[in-house]
Amino acid sequence: MPSDAALPSSLPEGRFDGREAFDRLLRIALAAAAQRGWKELIFSDPDFADWPLGERASIEALQAWSASGRRLVLLAERFDGVERRHARFVGWRRSWDHIVECRALRVSPAQAGSGVPSALWTPSWFLHRIDVERSRGLASADARTRSALRESIEECWRQARPAFPASTLGL
């Protein structure tokens, strides 16, 4: 996780290209979440398989961010990749279940990957991966674009069903 001194005074803005750039921007945003006191974070992606959620630095950043009055929303088409690839995140999610809401949007196999936007949304900044395959997109604080992205995510959220429970209870 970047130290506070390593965080820019303003979050990066502009187009990004490639997986390394996307991962770097995600790490910067997670590190900035606690420092900036964001009350809500929204993670949206078809499956989160290639997000750095299982990294120790990501969990440390989420731990620093998580507090009373915080809310993390996860929207996906499926969460099986999270459970397989991000064990640290699954453990953190279990501990912080009271601030985490998860939903999955069912899409047909032909629509897979095109239903849920790949984005990290915050109250003042966003990261939107427009081309998931090539990890290309836009990072910005632009209010109009951020609002449009939030509306797109909310539309998917309304159609989605609860998913990725913190634990499974059996009889």
Rank of each mutant, 00 (worst) to 15 (best):
Thr122Met: 04
Glu155Pro: 00
His128Pro: 09
Ala76Met: 00
Glu77Gln: 07
Gly18Phe: 03
Ala34Gly: 15
Gly113Phe: 00
Glu151Cys: 12
Leu138Val: 14
Ala110Leu: 04
Ala76Ile: 02
Gly14His: 08
Ala141Asp: 15
Gly69Val: 13
Trp157Gly: 10
Glu133Gln: 15
Trp65Ile: 10
Asp4His: 02
Arg94Leu: 09
Gly14Cys: 08
Ala110Gln: 09
Gly113Lys: 00
Trp125Cys: 08
Ser124Gln: 15
Pro12Asn: 08
Ala166Glu: 09
Asp131His: 10
Gly137Leu: 04
Ile153Gln: 00
Ser108Gln: 06
Trp51His: 09
Gly91Pro: 13
Cys102Asp: 11
Val132Asp: 14
Glu60Ala: 11
Ile153Asp: 05
Ala166Tyr: 01
Ser10Thr: 15
Val107Leu: 00
Phe16Met: 05
Ala76Asp: 10
Leu149Ala: 06
Leu53Arg: 01
Arg70Glu: 13
Asp80Gln: 03
Ala5Met: 03
Ser167Glu: 15
Arg103Glu: 15
Ser9Thr: 15
Val73Met: 02
Leu26Ala: 08
Ser95Leu: 15
Gln111Phe: 01
Glu155Lys: 09
Leu72Val: 07
Cys102Thr: 05
Trp121Gln: 05
Pro123Lys: 03
Leu26Trp: 04
Pro162Val: 08
Asp17Phe: 08
Ser108Asn: 06
Pro2Lys: 01
Asp97Phe: 02
Ala21Met: 03
Glu133Arg: 15
Ser10Ile: 14
Leu171His: 12
Arg129Asn: 15
Ser3His: 06
Gly137Gln: 05
Ser135Ala: 14
